[in-house]
Amino acid sequence: MDEPLVRAFPVTRRSALEAARSADSAERARGLRTVSEAYWRPVYGYLRLHWKKQHEDAADLTQEFFAQLVDKDLLGRFDPAKARLRTFLRVCIDGLVANQARAANRQKRRAHAFDFEAARVALGGREAAASPDAEFEKEWSRAVFAMALERLRDRCQREGKEQHFALLEAYDLGDRPSYAALAERFGIAVTDVTNRLAWSRRELRASVFEVLGELTSSDEELREEARALLEPE
C-alpha cells in the first residue's frame, strides 16, 4: 500500500484492544487507558438513560465496569466478527447491572479519574428525550472527536502551531465566522486562515483515524467504525 493511502486510512495501528489484552502490564495499561477514555462517557450515559441509575450509582457502576474489564478480561472475550465493540460493551453493562444486587456489598472502586460531574451536567436536559442506544453512539462519537482534538492540540503546542488549532476551534467548534473575520481577529491574511484551517482539518482527520485505528483490530472494523462516526444514519 502506498504512503498517501496509509495517511488517509492508517493500516498500521497500535490497537488499544490488543494492548489491553497484552501480557505486558505497561502495554495493558496503555490499552485500557485508551479504551476507557473513549467509552467511559457512553457507559455512564447508558447507565443513566437505559438503566435509570442515579448519578452516584451510575458513577460507581462505571468505575466497577472498567475494573471488571481488567479483572474478568472481558475484552479477551470480544470477537469483532460477531459484534461491534459498542454492542459488546452494552451487553457487558447489562450483565453488570443484572449482577448488581448480588454485589450490593462490594467495595467501591475508584481506579479511574473520570469527571462524572461534567458528564452529569452534560447529560442534564437530554435525559427525558434521548434514546439510550442513540445516546451511547453519540457519546462515543463525542469521545472519539474529543480524543482526536486533544491529540491535535498537543501536537500543535509541540510544533508551535497554536494558531492553527485556535483557528480550528474558532471556526469548526465555534459558529463558523467568515474567514475575513477570523483574519482580522488573528491579525493574519485571509489566505493564511484558509491554509492553516486546511492543515488543521487534514491533521484532525488523520488524528480521528489514528484514534479509531487504536479502538479497532481490523481494517474492516475500522472502516465500519469510521462510517458510524462520520456518516451516522
Binding site: 461534567a118 452534560a122 453519540k138 462519537s141 463525542r142 472527536f145 474529543a146 482534538l149 486533544e150 492540540r153 480550528l168 469548526d172 467548534l173 463558523r176 484558509t194 491554509n195 486546511a198 482539518r201 487534514r202 484532525l204 482527520r205 480521528v208 462516526l229 462520520l230 456518516e231
Partner: peptide, 22 residues
C-alpha cells in the same frame, strides 16, 4: 476543552470529510 454539543459534532464531521482542494 468544552463538551462537544450536537452542532459542534456535526461541524467536525463536515470538517473531517470535506476535501481540501486548495
Amino acid at each position: 476543552m468544552k463538551p462537544l454539543d450536537d452542532a459542534a459534532l456535526s461541524r467536525l464531521r463536515e470538517a473531517v470529510l470535506e476535501p481540501d482542494l486548495s
